[in-house]
Amino acid sequence: MTSADLPGDALAILIIDDHRMFADAMMNLFRQCWPAASVRCVNSANEGLQQLQQQAWQLLLMDLGLPDMDGLALLEQVRKQHSSLPLLVCTGETRPVVLKRVLQAGASGLITKNQSAEEVLQAIDAVLAGIRYLAPEAEQALSIPEPHQADVLSERQLAILRLMQAGHSTPEIARQLFLSPNTVKTHIRLMFEKLGVNNRVECLTVAHERGYIHV
């Protein structure tokens, strides 16, 4: 079944997203395509769970970054209660380890917020038909071999990496993250070891190739 197989007034879409501009754009797109459809947006996971209890929905579009609950936790909870609901996750995350967790938790598909309206509609048709949809960025990220766990950068190291990418010096990074310069130096040394590099330029290049940072 695709969106074309559903009468306009039978299509009910719930959006869980706290980014107002994106949510409004999606609501306008859906209402243009299906004027009689029921389209509602809520800004938190708890509101979304309430809506799922109160009404039958044909599609759930949800963000991973929500203010009141981890997106993966919400996804797992929704799947336990609504196992067959087509569910599209919108994310800017491209680390393979995270994307795999999203799919393992039960997402029907993955889209990104920079995709075109046409691509979003294609994603909806795919998941309504029971076909998994992956945004090109997600598909490319998942094709990269996952590193050994010992090689995975920690959240602290990722924060340091992003500041390095922005051109900050070690003392500046230390101030922004409320760390000592020696602690930052230790993390940088560990990152070099994990990525098999010898300097910052090589570190940023390899980190980009592995999907840890983006240009």
Rank of each mutant, 00 (worst) to 15 (best):
M191W: 05
A150Y: 01
I131L: 10
P147E: 08
L128S: 09
E47C: 10
V120R: 10
L11K: 06
P145C: 11
Y133S: 06
A207N: 06
D5G: 09
Q81E: 10
F30C: 08
I131Y: 06
N43S: 13
L142Q: 03
G71D: 09
D17L: 12
Q55H: 15
S38V: 06
S44I: 14
L66W: 14
G65L: 14
I173A: 03
A207H: 08
M1G: 13
D68M: 13
A36V: 08
L134K: 03
S169F: 08
V42M: 11
M27L: 10
E202F: 09
S84E: 11
D70F: 09
E146D: 09
Q149T: 11
A105Y: 07
V78A: 03
K194H: 05
G48I: 15
H168E: 05
L87E: 00
Q32Y: 12
L61M: 15
K185I: 12
A12Q: 12
P96T: 10
R200V: 12
A10R: 13
I15G: 03
I160F: 00
L6F: 11
C41S: 12
E193S: 13
V215G: 13
Q157L: 04
E118D: 10
R156L: 07
D70Y: 11
A174P: 00
A117K: 03
P181D: 03
L158C: 11
Q81Y: 02
R189G: 02
T112M: 05
C90R: 14
A138K: 03
L72D: 06
A159G: 11
Q58K: 13
Q50G: 05
G8V: 00
A174Y: 01
V201M: 12
A135H: 09
M164R: 13
R40K: 15
H208F: 04
S84K: 09
D24M: 15
V97H: 14
K80M: 04
P136Q: 00
F192Y: 14
G106D: 01
H208G: 10
L60A: 06
I16L: 10
V102S: 05
L60R: 00
V39F: 02
L49D: 01
L88D: 07
A4W: 05
D68C: 12
A12I: 03
Q176W: 01
Q157Y: 06
L52K: 01
G71N: 10
Q140H: 07
Q54M: 15
L204G: 07
I13Q: 04
A73C: 11
A138Q: 04
